[in-house]
Amino acid sequence: MLKNEILKILESDARTTPEAISRMTGGSLDEITRIIKGAEADRTIVRYKTVVNWEKVSNERVEAIIEVKVTPQRDTGFDAIARRVYNFPEARTVYLMSGTYDLAVLVTGKTMHQVADFVSQKLSQIDGVQGTTTHFMLKRYKEDGEVLAGTEQINRQQVVL
């Protein structure tokens, strides 16, 4: 139970110190530290992450979600193809999905052309890939639970009738 509490706290804010987690949960500092180190060692905690609103920094980044239809491989199912896909540096995230397409791949590039080249020259060339559909992300509103856009206040004059 304490481990789940710790994981939820760190997922919400990876910068939370073990001392703060100890105060929040009532667990001892030694126990909190031991649980965190164990979770890091067994890869329950894979990485600490910062969510960046890249639109505030630059526009030199294009993101797309690529849906991929594949033929499952004998003995490995979707895993062998997914492994080939997630080893490409352009593929930031790869999911096995239910529905019409089998894999969802989040891709990042500098231009739309670069992303399209990745799809046509790398992704589509993998044996077992039957087809792809590319969805370019035009605006991010929320990521990992954090609202990125739409929080600006609209200042309109009040109309009185």
Score class of each variant (00 low, 15 high):
Ile81Phe: 08
Glu40Gly: 00
Thr25Gln: 11
Ala91Arg: 05
Arg140Ala: 02
Val57His: 01
Glu90Ile: 06
Ser124Gly: 15
Leu96Val: 10
Val147Lys: 07
Glu19Asp: 10
Arg15Trp: 12
Asn4Thr: 02
Pro72Gly: 06
Tyr48Arg: 05
Ser120Glu: 04
Arg15Gln: 13
Val52Thr: 09
Asp117Tyr: 09
Lys37Cys: 14
Val57Gly: 07
Thr134Lys: 02
Phe88Met: 10
Gln121Met: 14
Gly150Phe: 00
Ala39Met: 02
Asp79Glu: 13
Thr16Pro: 08
Asn87Arg: 01
Glu90Gly: 06
Thr93Arg: 11
Asn4Ser: 04
Ala39His: 01
Arg92Trp: 07
Trp54Asp: 05
Gly77Thr: 10
Ser28Phe: 05
Lys110Ile: 15
Phe88Glu: 10
Val57Met: 02
Glu152Thr: 11
Gln153Gly: 12
Asn87Gln: 07
Gln158Thr: 06
Ile35Pro: 02
Ile32Thr: 14
Ala149Glu: 12
Asn155Glu: 05
Asp42Met: 02
Pro72Gln: 00
Leu7Asn: 01
Thr132Ser: 11
Ala41Lys: 11
Gly145Met: 11
Val85Trp: 02
Ile6Asn: 02
Glu40Thr: 01
Ile6Lys: 02
Asp79Gln: 11
Ser58Pro: 12
Ile126Leu: 03
Arg92Ile: 06
Thr108Ala: 09
Lys49Glu: 15
Lys56Trp: 12
Gln114Trp: 03
Ala116Gln: 05
Val46Asn: 07
Phe136Gln: 05
Tyr141Asn: 12
Asn59Val: 11
Asp75Met: 03
Ser12Pro: 01
Lys8Ala: 11
Ile36Asn: 02
Ala20Leu: 13
Asn53Cys: 04
Phe88Thr: 13
Leu96Ser: 15
Thr76His: 01
Pro72Arg: 02
Glu67Ile: 07
Tyr86Gln: 08
Thr17Lys: 07
Met97Pro: 13
Glu143Thr: 10
Glu143Phe: 04
Met97Asp: 07
Phe118Tyr: 12
Leu161Lys: 12
Val68Leu: 14
Ile66Met: 08
Tyr48Ile: 10
Arg74Gln: 10
His135Ile: 11
Tyr141Gln: 10
Tyr48Asn: 09
Val119Asn: 07
Val51Asp: 10
Asp13Pro: 06
Arg43Thr: 14
Ala14His: 07
Arg34Asp: 08
Thr151Ala: 04
Gln158Met: 09
Phe88Ala: 06
Val107Trp: 06
Ile21Val: 03
Thr71Asp: 13
Asn59Met: 02
Leu123Pro: 00
Thr17Gly: 05
Arg156Lys: 15
Gln73Met: 11
Asn155Gly: 03
Tyr101Leu: 06
Leu138Lys: 08
Gln121Cys: 08
Ala80Leu: 03
Thr151Trp: 06
Val105Ser: 06
Thr132Trp: 10
Gln114Pro: 11
Ile126His: 00
Asp127Lys: 03
Ala116Ile: 05
Leu123Ala: 10
Asp117Asn: 15
Thr100Trp: 14
Ile126Ala: 05
Thr50Lys: 12
Thr76Val: 10
Thr71Ile: 10
Lys122Ala: 04
Asp79Ile: 12
Glu11Tyr: 00
Val68Arg: 05
Arg74Val: 13
Arg84Ser: 13
Asp75Thr: 06
Asp127Arg: 04
Gln73Phe: 10
Thr25His: 12
Thr25Met: 09
Thr133Ala: 15
Ile66Glu: 09
Leu7Cys: 01
Asn59Trp: 03
Ala116Phe: 07
Thr33Glu: 13
Ile9Asn: 01
Gly145Asn: 08
Gly128Pro: 01
Gln157Arg: 14
Ser98Thr: 02
Tyr95Lys: 13
Asp75Phe: 08
